[in-house]
Design a protein around this nucleic acid. Structure first.
Lengths: 213, 213, 213, 213
DNA sequence: GATGAATGAGCCTTCATTCAT
DNA sequence: GATGAATGAAGGCTCATTCAT
């Protein structure tokens, strides 16, 4: 976890360039979550980071660029997370799929702040070239990889689900419970979210998956 | 669906109050879809409706109120749509679930514009009291109803899925493919979306559902 | 007293032109008093008169004209009031001065509404040509007349006050207590106002004036 | 009196915070005098100060706050002025009253601009909570102090005027000549204003006051 | 690096005015 | 006469961006 900005102590006089940028990006994520895309202002970001207004622009040039780099950061963080999970898994597709799903619900990543920030970017994806430009490649890579695993489930274990649809179902179940956290009046917790997806996965591949409990 | 907004002909000097309000609400949905929540301006709405921006405020008072009434309109439209679908279905839970799912992909409702508008509201749900205040009741009603149908699937047909999770899985699969339309670079069409959900449904209840083709 | 507008009963379908104009002018005075010059809107005037927005402009053409005619009305009302008081007085200057002062505190004229309306016009007198154009003549006539009476006090009763200053002192004492009603947190009543001026008058002309009690 | 506002030279990029605020407040007073309360706009204030309109809001937040701080400034200036005058006077009530009156006609304070600004605030006092909230205390302090001095005139010099009325008469004569400056077509000068009030004072306390000449 | 004053574009909103019915 | 829809100018305010220190 990157070191989260904390406004109270006077900001250290000199910080490494990268630490400052990270601090501002984390403040951007938090502000996005707190105020939504439409009310995220540079002033609010600066305040949350405990920095002056001008310094944010000194480091990022423009607001659009700050948003772009924040999205890059989230996107890269997400990719690194599932890739690390795959590294630790063996080669069986059921292990790898399980690892991916669990990774998506890791408490480091799956926080209300980050979910809200993702949703903010998604909602602007249609009208802002930003999202497609920055995330299309990562998203596609993730989908292709998941489709490959689903294809292996068919080949190795005798299932008969179209891999593209199966992969898509896994993906949308994950996105769906993320969305639930943002829109439900009384959201369920991380554990229930994971088990909901595992239940769905167990429906797709009954001999290999199922809820924890 | 009314298709009123059309800027070219000089707007009739007087229209019935309700027709004008509807026209403006449709223009709001379209603008929300085109520009996203953060860049939806009253000027843009007025332009799209072919009206002066002052008239929008004459009819709705404030921008916030316009947004609230737009959300009410979408929410009511959605509720009316699935309730009408249930009216036409018989009493068997599998028929009713299928009717709900198909209703959610009706071409009148499931348009890119409306999906984008919904997403815009979802993304602000955390920071704006608007969404919870207006939609929580409708959302909860929908969930309860779906949970009831899933419970009947267990009772009548011998399935063994926890109804709350099963209902949630149906919901998030639907929301998930909606979300896909907004975020994928090359989204799939309505038919494929429906069949994806039916495939997922077939995994949950194998003896009663499956893709069309 | 002109017939005060009363919003509750549905406005009589057909009224004489002059009655409508008067009704609107009275509503203007009341609105001026309630909201101040800067927040007096045609909508507020119409609402107070129980009429539609457009009707006000039908009768007065523009807002500026409505204000001008309202000022004319107040000015004429004021002039008629003191002239009527003089008609009833005998020819002695002390009687005539007393009549003038009492006229200025007549309960019909000296209402919080009218005082506030006058003050509103005074405060805009510098920047709006309106006041000078409409009231300079009346004001000058009043001053000349008062100066003549003060000159008679000297000639007939042996006082030795410069008539211009004496007249001015009478005028500003009256205006001053009017102003007090608008600015004091706990203003005094009409009777105390009158006796304050009579006390001042008694200081100027000790053998002829003094407070009532 | 600072005489800062001057649009011609390009404004220094940076000024001390307080100097800028003062400059803007003086421009507000001038604009209030020139245009009246109802047409005083931030743009007009900024133009008169030779600054951008955004800067006015940068320093004062809102127009309402700018008005409030301007009134505070005028009110404090007025209080400081009469208190300084009292400091220089000896303890005899006639000296102190004379000092107060002369202070009210000091050329620094008693300018057309300031008089017009005061009148603008007075005219909105009824409908805006501003005036009462900011000035009631100062006004009451002034009245009490003046009443005390009038009581001393009775006690020490054998006069027999009710102190409250006497003090009120002094106050309204001063306010009255201020009002005259705003409403008369051909106002008299400062000297004549002072002598008018001194004449009135001489009528109240014949053995101690009278016009200068 | 860092700060905060300064600018100006663009937004929401108010409101006088016009006009069809 | 009377109504209320419709327009557009103008105002207050927010905020990204620039820039002197």
């Amino acid at each position: 976890m990157p070191q989260i900005a904390s406004a109270n102590p006077p900001p250290p006089r000199t910080q490494s360039r990268d630490a400052r940028r990270l601090q501002i990006i984390e403040a951007t994520i938090a502000t996005l979550a707190e105020k939504g895309f439409s009310r995220m202002t540079l002033t609010a970001v600066a305040q949350r980071a405990g920095l002056s207004h001008g310094l944010v622009l000194f480091h990022f040039g423009t607001k659009d660029n700050l948003l772009a780099e924040t999205l890059d950061y989230l996107s890269e963080e997400y990719r690194a997370n599932w890739q690390a999970a795959l590294q630790l898994a063996d080669n069986r597709p059921e292990t790898r799929i399980a690892a991916l799903v669990r990774a998506d619900f890791s408490p480091d990543l799956c926080t209300p702040e980050r979910q809200a920030a993702w949703l903010a970017f998604w909602s602007e994806a249609q009208s802002l070239p930003l999202y497609q430009a920055r995330c299309a490649a990562n998203d596609a890579e993730y989908s292709r990889m998941l489709e490959g695993l689903c294809a292996q489930m068919n080949a190795l274990h005798g299932y008969d689900l179209p891999p593209v649809r199966a992969a898509r179902l896994v993906r949308i179940m994950i996105d769906g419970v993320w969305l639930d956290q943002m829109t439900l009046q009384a959201p369920y917790d991380l554990d229930e979210a994971l088990n909901t997806v595992l239940t769905g996965l167990g429906a797709l591949y009954p001999r290999h998956f199922g809820p924890n409990a």
